[in-house]
């Protein structure tokens, strides 16, 4: 039986949904599933890790692991993978995963696959499916090594609520900090806000909103809908929106029930991050904007006019 190690995604002490999704996938392919959780003050998460479907929980819990640092983080995953004898190591989709996975693969002499949407074990040989060339094509990739490290694209797998696990906690030794790449400061720009990756509705703002005033208007719409608030790269580069709000090929990948693109043209790099959304609503004053080619509903109009009306109309139907 294949052995799958899932790297738990923990943000601000909260276990993210990707962990249960990846563990469900592990069990669906008939594997024995373990989880490795890395962070500070996380032992309280063990019951949740069990419920998510793991049968062994490797825990690296130390104050020194509070801030993400790729070296020690990868060392914990490698340690757990070796102890467990993992054939497949799955990471959720995040910047931390993207930084750690290639290190883990290099250390384990395993293959490495980024942003996979499917994985199958065929006679012990893994095959994965993943988008490439800015989502313009899909590749089927054959793995030639017996071990594979993969980062799973956000929203690729669904959690199976009916599975469960057993508690079997293994404490990992805490690796030394990386003294050659030292985090001096974290300029946090999103704590407390709704995580884009989890949000059921995402409202994103683009260059069409022009300035702080425009952004505030669109943000109100997001707040009314209890939605995650994202951005195109144009607004990030202009310094109006924080980097970790960027949706797209170089930013977050989201797949909410409803994605509202406000003043966003629909460049392929932006679409790469949101085309998995169930329903897309676009507001743009240019009837030829490419975003309309992929939007289920498009309103051609000036966002400064449309958004206030949209807010009122939404209030009406929601009350």
């Amino acid at each position: 039986m294949a052995k799958v190690l899932v790297v738990a995604e923990i943000k601000q002490g909260v276990l993210k949904s990707s962990t249960a999704e990846l563990l469900s996938k592990a069990k669906a392919i008939g594997a024995e599933a373990a989880v490795v959780a890395i962070g500070s003050n996380i032992e309280g998460l063990v019951p949740e890790l069990v419920k998510a479907g793991s049968d062994t929980q490797y825990i690296a819990d130390d104050a020194g692991l509070e801030l993400f640092s790729a070296g020690p983080y990868a060392a914990c995953v490698v340690d757990a993978a070796r102890q467990f004898g993992a054939d497949l190591i799955l990471f959720g989709f995040s910047e931390s995963s993207k930084a750690a996975a290639p290190r883990v693969a290099a250390q384990l002499d395993a293959a490495c696959a980024s942003e996979i949407t499917e994985v199958a074990a065929d006679n012990g040989a893994f095959q994965v499916v993943r988008p490439a060339i800015t989502n313009k094509v899909v590749q089927k990739v054959k793995v030639n090594t017996d071990k594979l490290v993969a980062v799973v694209r956000a929203g690729a797998f669904e959690a199976d609520e009916s599975i469960g696990g057993t508690e079997n906690v293994v404490k990992l030794d805490i690796p030394a900090p990386d003294l050659k790449a030292v985090i001096k400061e974290l300029v946090s720009d999103a704590s407390g806000e709704i995580d884009l990756a989890d949000a059921d509705v995402v409202v994103s703002v683009g260059r069409g909103a022009r300035n702080e005033e425009g952004i505030a208007l669109v943000k109100e719409l997001a707040d009314d809908l209890n939605a995650g608030f994202g951005s195109s790269r144009a607004m990030v580069d202009a310094g109006f929106m924080p980097h970790n709000k960027q949706v797209g090929q170089t930013g977050k990948i989201v797949a909410p029930s409803l994605y509202i693109a406000v003043g966003i043209s629909g460049a392929i790099q932006h679409l790469a991050g949101m085309s998995g959304s169930k329903v897309v609503l676009a507001i743009n004053k240019d009837p030829e904007a490419p975003i309309f080619n992929i939007a289920d509903y498009g309103i051609v109009g000036d966002l400064f006019e449309v958004v206030p009306i949209l807010k009122e109309e939404l209030k009406k139907v929601r009350s």
Binding site: A105, A110, A111, C112, A113, Q127, P131, N135, K136, V137, V138, Q139, K140, V141, K142, V143, N144, T145, L148, L271, S275, V280, P287, F292, N293, I294, A295, D296, Y297, G298, I299, V300, G301, D302, E305, V306, I309
Partner: peptide
């Protein structure tokens, strides 16, 4: 001995556009 190799390319699923509404906001 590459650790992995692409064995097939496929078209990605394209979203198609829906309805576009123009007129009185």
């Amino acid at each position: 001995a590459p650790k992995s190799e692409v064995i097939e390319f496929m078209e990605s699923e394209k979203r198609s556009g829906g309805r576009k509404f123009e007129g009185d906001p």
